[in-house]
C-alpha cells in the first residue's frame, strides 16, 4: 500500500515551471531515491510533499489521505511527515536534546519528562547519547545532521523526506549520517531521499527516480537504472556521478 502518493504535481515560481507534472508513489517501508542534476526540481518536489512549498496543481496523498487543499490543518499534515534538510537547520539556540523534544512538547503536547526520555532514546539511536546538552554550534556537521534525523523521528512520522542530507558534509562525516539512514531503512521506515550517494542508493534504495527539468524521466530498481539505463540522458548523468 502506498504511503506517499504524488499525482501530476506542478509548481511554478513566477514564469519558471519547476515541477512539471510529476507522479509517483512510495509504498510503505520503501526507500525511494531521487537523483538528477541540480535545478531539476528535486528539492521543490520534496517540499511539495509536506507543503513547505504549495503545489500549484495536482494532488499529494499521505497514507491515503489527500494533503493538498485548504490551508487549515496544514500543521497536522506536516507533523506526519518528517524532513531532514541539506543544511541541518537545527534550532541554533537550543541544545541537541531540546531540538529533538521541541516538537514533542509543543506540537504533540507530550509532558516534558516523557519527551526528555524519548529524546534521549532517539539521541542514543543516532549515536549521540553523550551530547544531549551540546548546542548545534558545538557539534560537527555529521553530528548536527544526526540530531536533525532524531528530531524528525521524534514526531513518529509516517515517512521521512531527506533533502540532500549529506551534501553539506565533509567527506569523512558522510558515512556516519548514511549509517543512521541505512539503519532506519532496515527498521522499515518509509523514506524519500534526494541524494547522489551512490553507495547508499545501491545498497539501500528500493527504487530510483531520475528527474530532469521538472520531470521524472526514468525509474527502476537501482541496478537496472545504473547498469542499463533506458535513456541516453540517464546514462550521461550516471556516468558523471559515478566518475
Amino acid at each position: 500500500m502506498s504511503m506517499l502518493e504524488v499525482r501530476n504535481v506542478h509548481k511554478w515560481f513566477g514564469d519558471l515551471h519547476v515541477v512539471r507534472g510529476v507522479s509517483f508513489e512510495v509504498r510503505k517501508r520503501e526507500v525511494v531515491v531521487i537523483i538528477g542534476p541540480s535545478g531539476s526540481g528535486k528539492s521543490t518536489l520534496l517540499r511539495c510533499i509536506n507543503r513547505l512549498v504549495e503545489p500549484d496543481e495536482g494532488e499529494v496523498l499521505v497514507d491515503g489521505a489527500p494533503i493538498t487543499g485548504p490551508k487549515k490543518g496544514v500543521e497536522r499534515i506536516r507533523s506526519q511527515v518528517g524532513m531532514v534538510f541539506q543544511n541541518f537547520n537545527l534550532f541554533t539556540h537550543l541544545t541537541a536534546l531540546d531540538n529533538v523534544t521541541l516538537g514533542l512538547t509543543k506540537v504533540k503536547g507530550v509532558a516534558p519528562a516523557k519527551a526528555r526520555e524519548r529524546g534521549l532514546q532517539l539521541l542514543e539511536k543516532v549515536g549521540l547519547r553523550d551530547k544531549p546538552g551540546s548546542y548545534p554550534a558545538q557539534l560537527s556537521g555529521g553530528q548536527q545532521q544526526r540530531v536533525a534525523i532524531a528530531r524528525a523521528l521524534a514526531m513518529n512520522p509516517k515517512a521521512v523526506l531527506f533533502d540532500e542530507p549529506t551534501s553539506a558534509l565533509d567527506p569523512e562525516l558522510i558515512g556516519e549520517v548514511l549509517d543512521v539512514m541505512t539503519q532506519l531503512a532496515r527498521e522499515g521506515m518509509t523514506m524519500l531521499v534526494v541524494s547522489h550517494e551512490m553507495g547508499f542508493v545501491r545498497n539501500v534504495a528500493t527504487r530510483v527516480l531520475f528527474m530532469v527539468e521538472g520531470k521524472i524521466l526514468e525509474e527502476g530498481i537501482p541496478n537496472e537504472v545504473f547498469q542499463s539505463p533506458k535513456l541516453e540522458r540517464t546514462r550521461e548523468f550516471i556516468s558523471k556521478i559515478l566518475a
Binding site: 518528517g82 537547520n89 541554533t92
Partner: peptide
Amino acid sequence: IARGQMEAAASLGMTYWQTMRYV
C-alpha cells in the same frame, strides 16, 4: 534569522505563532 529555521519548525508541524514564540 535563516529561512531554514522557519522551515524546520514548520516541518515539525509548528504553527506560525508557535514558531514565533519558540524559534
